[in-house]
Structure formats: C-alpha cells, structure tokens
Simulated assay, not measured.
Amino acid sequence: MSAPVLDAPDTLSRLIPSRVARGFLLAVISGLLFNFLNASAKELAGQLPPLFVSWGRWVAGVSLIAPYLLWRVGPQGMRTRDLKLHCLRGLFHTPGYGLWYEAVAWLPLATMAALGFTGPIFVTVGAVLFLHETVHWRRWAAVGIGFFGMLVIVRPGLVALNPGMLMMLMAVPLIAGSNLVAKVVSGRDKPAVVVLWQSIVGAICFAPFGLWFWQTPTAEQLLLFLASGFFGTLGYFFITWAYRLLDISALQPITFLGIVWAALSDVVIWGKTSDVWTFVGAAIIVGSTTYIAHREARSVAAGAGGKKT
C-alpha cells in the first residue's frame, strides 16, 4: 500500500507557502492539543476505570465531530472511501490506546512522553518497509539523537520499571502501526472524515470495555470527557492534515517536543517537578527537532520540483 504526499493548495497555502513549514506547524499544534487531551485523560483515569475513560473519550469525539460534519457537508460528505483501512487501524488503535490509558494512571505525563519517543523508531522503519518512503540520513540522525535524549530522561537500569512503563512499551509499537495506517488513509479521505471514522471505530471497539466498567460520571467528569473529545478531535484533525503534506517519518521528530508540554503540565496541574536530567534530555530532543526542521526546509527549497529528500 502506498501513501503519496499531497501538494495541493489548502487553506494555509497563502499564509504559509512552504509545504514543509505548513506540515511542521500543523504537527506542533497537534502536539499541544494532544497534551491537553492527555492531561484530561490522566485526571479522569485517576477517578474512573481507565478503559471506561478510553471509551468515553471516543464517544465524546463522535458527539462533537459528527454533528459538525453533518451540518457542513451532509451525510454524503461523511462517507469514507476505504472503511477497511479504518477498521485495520482500529486493530492497532484499540489495544495500543487501551494499554496507554491503563499506563496513564501510573505515570507522570513527562514519563509517558519520554517512553513514547520510542515510537519514531517503529514508525520510521515501518514507513520504509510498508509505505516505501525514502528516509535520508538527516531524519535517521534526528530520530537517533531524539532517542538518546529519551534515554537520558528515563535512565534505564537506574530507575525501576513499574507496570505503567511496561504497558507503555507494549503500547508504543501498536500506536506506531495505527499512525502508519493513518498516513495511508489520509491520502484517500479528508482530515475531518478520517477523524470521524477513527472516532466511530474507536467508540465501537471500546464499547464492551466501557459498558463492563460503567460508572455514572459526575458533571465535572462529563466536562473532562468533553474536553478530551474536543482536544483529541482537533489534535487528530491537524496531524492528519500534516500527514497529507509530509512523509510520516519527516514529522516524527516533532513529537519529541511533547516532553516539553508534558513536563509543564506535570508542574502546573499536579505540582510535580522534573529532575535536571529531564530537561537535559528535553534540550537534546528539541535540538534534534529544530535541526531536522531546518535541514528539511532547506532540502525541499533547493530541490523544488524534484525528488523529496
């Protein structure tokens, strides 16, 4: 299966002519939105069964995006061109995020983000093997440097593993598989339609767990569910849009910025402080991300109209 990058004009083209710049900006915005989603989910998972939280998050997402699309494009515009791909994505997405929601109750968001940084390794290899993307040494270097920064934060062998860490390490390759399928389907459906069907499939797949662990949420918890649905829907919308503009392997270094947003959330919301090694690792990661964005933009500018590098 192939996943061509689309260079067609979009609503940001006039404001930001560079396709690379648009892709990176959309990925950064999506990362911020996902951090808000993660904070909402962590707060809920501390009060309710995690698998019930995961189901409620997808139900909230459907309740927000479906009426909007029905109003904007009608039933015809909500149809997908490839339901099989959305279902295939659900096979990765459901166990991956099931494990993720279980892990978020055990770990700080900064640790979740740090462990999630192993994802680009799986995504980059998968993009080469299954999407036939050309990954040059700059992207491999950025992934490698970012991975080293993650090791500085986690310090394996010096910090004891807990169940949350093990669940995250199992979740990451599954989520990477979901992202690879998302890249393919983003070339066939519009971003809003991709997010709609992702939410529908997620709500259906998690329904047995949600009903099994049902607890009547309070008004405050309902607001948190709506917040998770809102931030998650917008986050997936922007990252799907970014997937239409750039190779998925080119976008992966941007995910390393998640450690910054996560560490800030830990301090602001839960009053936790990260040790100095977290910020050392974050500096390494942000440096690698900044470098790859700069080099990618220069490569595309120099070879405009030629093969992507």
Rank of each mutant, 00 (worst) to 15 (best):
T80G: 06
T80P: 04
D82R: 00
L83Y: 12
L83N: 07
L83P: 11
C87D: 00
L88P: 01
R89L: 10
G90L: 01
L91R: 07
L91G: 13
H93Q: 12
H93L: 10
H93K: 04
P95A: 05
G96W: 06
L99R: 05
Y101L: 06
Y101N: 13
E102S: 13
E102L: 15
E102F: 12
A105T: 03
W106D: 14
W106C: 08
L107I: 07
P108Y: 02
A110S: 15
T111G: 04
M112F: 10
M112E: 15
A114Q: 02
L115G: 10
G116S: 03
G119M: 15
I121P: 13
F122I: 09
T124S: 04
V125K: 12
A127M: 02
T134E: 15
W137R: 11
V143A: 01
V143F: 02
I145L: 13
F148W: 11
F148R: 11
M150L: 09
V152A: 06
V154H: 00
R155I: 09
R155H: 05
P156M: 05
P156G: 07
L158D: 15
V159F: 09
V159D: 06
A160R: 10
L161W: 09
P163Q: 02
P163D: 05
G164S: 07
M165W: 02
L166N: 04
M168Y: 02
L169M: 14
L169S: 03
L169T: 04
M170L: 15
A171C: 10
V172K: 00
V172I: 15
P173G: 11
G177I: 03
G177K: 00
S178N: 08
N179D: 15
V181M: 05
V181F: 08
V184A: 07
V185D: 07
V185L: 05
S186V: 12
G187I: 15
G187C: 14
R188E: 14
R188S: 11
D189A: 02
D189Q: 03
D189N: 05
P191Q: 07
V193M: 04
L196W: 10
L196G: 06
Q198L: 11
Q198C: 07
S199V: 04
V201L: 08
F206S: 09
F206W: 04
A207S: 11
A207Y: 03
F209C: 03
F209Y: 09
F209V: 02
F213Q: 10
F213K: 03
W214F: 13
T216C: 12
T216E: 15
T218I: 00
T218A: 10
E220K: 08
E220G: 12
